[in-house]
Amino acid sequence: MLAYIDKIKEISNRLLKEGKVDMVIGFRKGTVPMMNEPCFVKTPEDVDNFVWDSNCGINLANYLTNRKEKIGIVAKGCDSRNIVTHVIENKIKRDQLVIIGVPCKGMIDRHKIEAMFETEIQDVIEADDKIIVKGQGLEKTLNKKDVLQDNCALCIHRNPVIHDELVGDPVEEQKDLDRYEDVRKIEFMSPEEKWRYFDDLLSTCIRCYACRNACPLCYCPTCFVDESRPQWVGKSQDPIDTRTFHFLRAYHCAGRCTDCGACERACPMGIKVRTFTRKLEKDCLELFDWEAGLTLEERPPLDTYRPDDPDDFIK
């Protein structure tokens, strides 16, 4: 990690000094355990603010939308895939960017770790593959791999798929994972069971839209929930409206979602919002052999037509 940080600073320093970029987007140290804050740096003197550890789960591609500057951006595997998606969708130009790739071994799940202990966690230290959690009368060492964000535990693109610089050697990709066990469980449910399952899943939603706003894919000038003419969905806490929001949001991410986990990480109520997007991710993989954000050379399946597209559903 420390080597990564030095390298991020060194590269950022060089890019800014040489005038290759106007700003570098990365993370600075957070004020609470297991949180870092996305930030930008515009002068070489400030690059010392940058940090890197297992608390950089926010997807930085979110901060590129419609920017006009030349930007250096720190990107782990999933961020790089969303940068690809952003370039494809004309939200940023490839030649505006210097991508500082970070091979990633996963981010830790603060919701999960907080839930493991009765007492408040006051400090979390990372050492190699261990996570040391401290609180009042508490000190416990956890294996990082046991407390990864769910999406990171299932990640098969840990290395940036696109980059101009790389802060370390590529890490080994995870292989032979059963990535969709949980999705299959839901697929096997009857429509009534599914309905109850989603009802329960969303029961604590407060409609704060943190999931939507943390997502690099959600950049519409006016989101459908904010439209008033026509008003597609009610704005109250009514469960039907809440569900409609989540279902439609997920569909808008079909074929674009990289399963970066930003939505789930952002949710203040700990709702497993990836449940929806993962089903669509699985469908895109099975139907179109498609994983979002791997290449700039190909259009995503939902904005292209091929005569051999699967059409079993048409009777």
Binding site: S236, Q237, D238
Partner: peptide
């Protein structure tokens, strides 16, 4: 399931 006959608030 998607029919709103009143606002449950």
């Amino acid at each position: 399931n998607f029919l709103k006959t009143e606002a449950r608030v």
